[in-house]
Design a protein around this nucleic acid. Sequence first.
RNA 1: GGCCCGUUGGUCAAGCGGUUCAAGACGCUAGCCUCUCACGCUGGAAACAUGGGUUCGAUUCCCGUACGGGUCACCA
Length: 564
Amino acid sequence: MELQDFITLADLLFPHVTETPEDMEKRFPPRQLPEGAKVTRFAPSPTGFVHFGGMFPVTTAERLAHQSGGIFYLRIEDTDAQREIPGAAEKLITTLAAYGIHFDEGAILDENGKIADHGAYGPYKQSLRGPIYHVYAKQLVREGKAYPVFTTREELEQMAQVDKKAAIKAKDWHEAEAAQREEQQRQRAITLDEVKEQLAAGNPFYLRLLADGNAEKKLILTDLVKGKLEIPENEEDAVLLKSDGIPTYHFAHAVDDHLMGTTHVIRGEEWLPSVALHLMLFRYLGFRAPKYMHIAQLMKLDENGSKKKLSKRDMGANMDDYKQLGYVAECVNEYVMTLLNSNYEEWHMQNPDKAYTDFPFSIKKMSASGCLFDLNKLGDISKNVLSRWTAEQIYDGLVAWAQEYDTEFAALLTADPDKAKAIFAIGRGGKKPRKDFGIWSEVKGYMGFFYDEYYRIEDTIPETFSREDVKATLAAFKASYDEADDMNAWFDKVKAIATELGYAADMKAYKADPTAFKGNVADISMFLRVAVTGRFNAPDLYTVMHILGKDTTFARIDALAASL
RNA sequence: GGCCCGUUGGUCAAGCGGUUCAAGACGCUAGCCUCUCACGCUGGAAACAUGGGUUCGAUUCCCGUACGGGUCACCA
């Protein structure tokens, strides 16, 4: 086609488009931001929940923007109506908010929980930006950089039926490639007359980019995470607009990120293969390309022991799972930070009281390779975080969680807040706080025995100990117990019982000659512990008894004694 | 299959040509502390995928191989 023909073609294809790229530039002027301020975004398609892997780019983007005094915005990429799940976008926003991720602008929630535009660069939902894309589409056609491909409605419907993924998997790659190249040549050769004919017949068209690349040649670019990259030039005529006039991701990415002033595009590394195409689009459109950061995928170990992408169905993939299990958002954030920035842990150890948002996030410290999801590590971080909380904070956090996921437990806790807080105060506050639980769902197992509703005998005193000794211990303890005793006096009495029954009161003496005793004071304590807590393991018995009170303590001792 | 990315102990990782032939954290483990547990403390096992270059010298640079991952849609 001739130059003039392209202009005719553009008018034929987009008769309704009257605005020009210049108009767009006026409507969306460059942002006025201080030097070095980064503009980043999160651009999800509303097709499901927030994935743990998604937290990596999101957190990175949020940190980079806010740390630099820039803008972090939300753009909803709802260009595929087929896959869209109603309400997913709203859910995405509330989930992220729960993890402290807030947007400065974009399609965010208003007071009524509805998505509404917030900011001067909207609309922020791509489905609402049709006219904007069409301005640039028309421009590309005018310049001979894009061309239409026509199909009939029947063909379109047929296409919707086939399982494309399965088709790709099954095909012979060489054959498919050759066919594709041939098809591309054929489609490129469309004439103005054919276009008029098709248009007259009312057939829909989709728009393809006319790629000028040569895959034999390499394109050199720098990814801020991956470093220097050498990729073949793009020679595929990617689809820009679909038959319904809605842009594909690629086209929308170039137009939106330019117009919205994105400085850093942060996304998963699955986008790496299309960077050549994206750079071509920016060049065609006359836009300056943003800086790219492709973040490695989060992996998991499959049954065969090989690394696999953490998929939707995996435990821990859905960010909402963590809330249900009782993970505190702050802990998850910290875990994400340790994976994202290799020196975060070190920094945090030196600044245990600072929030992760105070950490100087560095792109240089990001790993280029994918990491394995490690629940152990998350658990450890969680325990450490919670161990620094006050009893009051633990109480509030636990109650809030229990009220949603374990109302029975919540009722018990709130019925006697002082008791609950006294339990949480055990071993808390010092230099070396206890670390008994990292998630709320573990707490009941740790402290349930304090409540008659959950108290039960889980461990039994081994048969190796004479029942008579156990009975004697329980009876003697009751006889000598005085709630007013301090811890030392209390333990002295336990020791006295041990001595009385022929058990060693002094552990060193016992270890020196175990055969001289029937057992030791640890055994005597164990009898009491099983009686009072129902188990072998519990926090300091003296404190436990005081929280329970004399009546409950004695009642439990009596119950065990009676069962012997 | 083509293309791209990656590869230090089980995991996350420091290292960025030579006092590190390898730090730290999680996990595992021995012991100490100790009335049990939870802490804490002191130890331990455990790694530079592989071959070939470059170099006086490579975990660190280059190439090949293997392995892992990603991608090749009118999905994002």
